[in-house]
Amino acid sequence: MCGRKRHLVVDVLGLVLAVQVHAANIQDRDGARALLPQLGAAFPSILRLWADGGYAGKLAEWVTTELQRTLEIVRRPREKKGFAVVGWRWIVERTFGWLNRSRRLRACS
């Protein structure tokens, strides 16, 4: 990915609500702390968020105390090997796929 991480917040249709791009050496949880307050200001009615395991840890507590929202970590079943469609996670992965089809939005050619 050429040294960049992209954090997306999408709705259930996969439409982008908020985006954050930063250097790849920043932990996912720290990148989310910069992104989620923007989401709360723009969309105050969103009260529940789903995220993958990269956002696990103290971030869920921070979201609850600071933003008054619920962050649920959606994990892949341990018995699954290889690719598996997991709950709500496939929606953001599909959105990343749509964005990567546009050459100008790709990190590297």
Rank of each mutant, 00 (worst) to 15 (best):
V86F: 01
L67A: 05
E93W: 13
I91A: 11
R69Q: 08
F83S: 06
R76L: 03
V92G: 00
I73N: 04
Q68I: 06
V86P: 09
G82Q: 09
F96C: 11
G97N: 11
T70W: 01
R78N: 07
P77Q: 07
I91L: 12
A84Y: 13
A84T: 15
I91R: 15
P77A: 06
L71E: 00
R75S: 10
V92M: 06
A84L: 05
L71V: 00
G82I: 15
E72M: 08
R75I: 02
V86G: 02
V86M: 00
R69T: 02
G97E: 12
V85Q: 08
R69A: 08
R78Q: 13
E79C: 01
W88K: 15
T70H: 04
G97P: 09
K81R: 15
V85D: 01
I73W: 03
Q68D: 02
E79S: 13
V92A: 03
T95M: 14
Q68G: 14
K81Q: 11
V86D: 09
E79I: 02
I91W: 08
F96V: 11
A84H: 13
G82E: 10
V86Y: 03
R89I: 10
G97Q: 13
V86C: 10
V74L: 00
G87I: 10
V74M: 02
P77D: 13
R94W: 07
W88N: 03
E79P: 00
K81Y: 06
W88L: 05
P77C: 00
E72V: 11
G82P: 03
L71T: 06
F96K: 07
V74R: 04
T95E: 07
F83A: 12
R76W: 02
V92S: 01
K80H: 06
R94C: 14
G97M: 14
T70N: 00
E93C: 09
A84G: 08
R94I: 01
T95I: 12
R69Y: 05
F96P: 10
W88C: 12
E72F: 14
V92C: 00
F96S: 11
I73Y: 04
I91K: 14
R69G: 04
F83E: 15
V74K: 01
G87H: 03
I91Q: 12
K80R: 03
E93Q: 05
I73P: 12
Q68A: 11
Q68S: 09
G82V: 03
R75Q: 12
R89N: 08
R75W: 04
L71S: 05
V86I: 09
A84E: 10
R78F: 04
G97D: 14
W90F: 10
T70D: 08
F83K: 01
E72H: 05
G97A: 14
E93G: 11
W90V: 08
K81S: 12
R94S: 11
V74D: 06
R78G: 08
F83I: 07
R78M: 06
I73A: 01
G82A: 12
R76S: 09
R76V: 06
V85L: 04
F83Y: 15
K80Y: 14
V74P: 15
E93K: 14
R89H: 03
R89D: 10
R89P: 01
V92D: 07
P77W: 00
V86Q: 02
W90G: 00
F83L: 14
K80L: 09
A84K: 04
R76Q: 09
P77H: 01
V74E: 12
L67W: 07
I91Y: 10
W90K: 14
K80A: 14
